[in-house]
């Protein structure tokens, strides 16, 4: 499971594939103020990225992957 959904927190881990995008979108529709924890995430598929870009959620834990971190900052700015 690349995304684990807690009450209002989505925990990303590893490589989050394109299949997750639908679930992620549903999650944010239900929790518009949902947060994300991307500490252990190495890559998210572009489909997920564009969902995040629309929602611009708060990141509770920054990704350890520096490149991904830079991209997320720019995308969710």
């Amino acid at each position: 499971m690349a995304i684990e959904y807690k009450k209002s927190l989505a925990i990303f881990s590893g490589n989050v594939s394109v299949e997750e995008a639908e679930g992620l979108l549903d999650f944010f529709v239900k929790n518009p103020k949902g947060k994300i924890n991307v500490a252990d995430c190495s890559h998210i598929h572009a489909a997920n990225l564009q969902v995040l870009m629309v929602v611009k959620p708060i990141i509770t834990n920054e990704p350890k992957d520096m490149d991904l971190q830079t991209w997320l900052h720019i995308a969710l700015k």
Binding site: V18, A21, E22, L25, V29, P32, A47, Q50, V51
Partner: peptide, 10 residues
């Protein structure tokens, strides 16, 4: 958000 199509790349 509710009407967004996650699988259409924008």
């Amino acid at each position: 958000l509710a009407e967004m199509d996650a699988y259409s790349c924008q």
